[in-house]
Design a binder for these strands. Structure first.
Lengths: 251, 251
DNA sequence: TGCAGCCTACTGGTCAGACCAGTGCACTAG
DNA sequence: CTAGTGCACTGGTCTGACCAGTAGGCTGCA
């Protein structure tokens, strides 16, 4: 004992070193969205590796959503602005392989949406309030006509609230989880009559939430938004998962 | 108008088709963690493509955390159990590229941790309570000795709470966001004296939270956990972001 | 018979060079 | 001045090769 502490060495593949370097450049801002990488043939000269190695690195970067290449493009791969696509992908995978239940997803949405409303009640601008108004008005018009359009307007409302929370992480996460939930229940929607009733009730709920946001009453907006979501999704959730959802209503 | 509606065709690369097929197999359970993929040379025969194409597909799958290959392994790539590594990676990228502020991250932690506590208060088992007790005891012993050990015990406590919430999404997200936050403030820690005082106060706060969880008072546990986290991190957060954090304390 | 050590047949990682279908730009013919 | 045509270049794919590493069977010794 007492000798020098050696660290286990990790053999690093060539393409990983390339990924690291380019990733570093993007994250430090040396490469900004819209800029182009050199062509693969240039990169292979710069990194002193073969084109296959360069390409494997680019595949990884592309899977992470950092760059995007297009065949025939006389410029190299384009650095992408951040998009939640990668986040969405891994969360979708999580939902499928780890068998996330609909209950867990809805519960998560209740948590996120409630906090977005809580913050929005404090921080919203008049302009954002107008957006929410417009979204609800759009829901009203759509309710009797098209479920898809209603759903889109509903999404717009929640997006406006999320933006008003001024927390990008909340904004992105709500979007990602919502799309997974909507995807899961797509096709499982109730009968047409039930659906119209559901939409009407949902509009009333959204109006109440918006009133609370407008009044600046965060805790109320949060509570109402949880109830709104519970009411809207509870029928899709298996009975044995509902108690856990109701636990969130008691706060 | 009125003719058949044509969909825009998306040229799909060969390696993407391979990714899709293997991904599908993993997500439907046809391939389970621990199982091996055929070797690259077998795959290239099965998919009728060249090895470079197979390899590019494997790189993508590996970036998504679905498989892992090891050079020299006489078996093929191994299907991995889901790990939040990919989620972690994309959220870290988000934090760096999109310049997520520490304030936003802490705010998100407050939201998640509070809801974990709320649920844990309802759903915790006695065994999980014992884990939380043990973690706090470990924090007590470590406080006077090592900040790192204290921090590890703190993590153990929050992990136990997250598990007790019985929501895998909350559990994973808290872990991911926490490690990003800890990474951001690493090195920025206050002076030694302040640090000890901070740890002592934090222990007291954790005890209060645990009491509320033990008593089954979810809303109280949630509120206390928000306060605990605010108190612990507020000094690292720029002054102009603090009001947004305080907004969460009012619920 | 038992086991230590070597050998071989694989693996993944990398390289080199080639072809193809696209793309954008410069040039050319009208 | 413009419409049209090449051309030079891109990324996507293929072929075939070499290397270092691994595991498991085989050999030969004790």
């Amino acid at each position: 004992m007492g000798g020098p502490r050696f660290e286990p060495v990790r053999t690093v593949r060539a393409y990983e070193r390339i990924v690291e370097q380019i990733e570093e450049a993007v994250e430090t801002g040396a490469l900004t969205p819209g800029q182009r990488l050199p062509s693969e043939r240039d990169l292979m000269a710069q990194f002193s590796v073969s084109r296959s190695t360069v390409r494997e690195a680019l595949r990884v970067l592309q899977a992470r959503g950092l760059v995007q290449s297009r065949p025939g493009d006389p410029n190299g791969a384009e650095v992408q602005p951040f998009s939640p696509a990668a986040l969405h992908k891994s969360m979708t995978t999580l939902a499928r392989v780890d068998e996330l239940s609909l209950g867990e997803l809805v519960q998560f949405r209740m948590v996120l949406d409630a906090s977005a409303n809580l913050l929005a009640a404090r921080l919203r601008t008049d302009e954002q309030l107008a957006e929410m108004d417009a979204a609800i008005e759009r829901m009203r018009r759509a309710a009797e006509v098209s479920y898809d359009e209603f759903s889109a307007a509903d999404v717009a409302f929640h997006d406006a609230v999320a933006r008003a929370s001024r927390n990008k992480l909340i904004e992105i996460s709500t979007g990602v989880v919502r799309s997974i939930v909507l995807n899961l229940i797509a096709g499982k929607i109730a009968s047409s009559d039930d659906r119209v009733a559901l939409m009407r009730r949902s509009i009333r709920h959204h109006e109440e939430v918006l009133d609370a946001v407008r009044a600046g009453d965060g805790p109320l907006a949060a509570r109402l938004s949880r109830e709104t979501m519970y009411d809207y999704y509870v029928d899709y959730v298996p009975a044995d998962e509902r108690p856990a959802l109701r636990a969130l209503l008691e706060e």
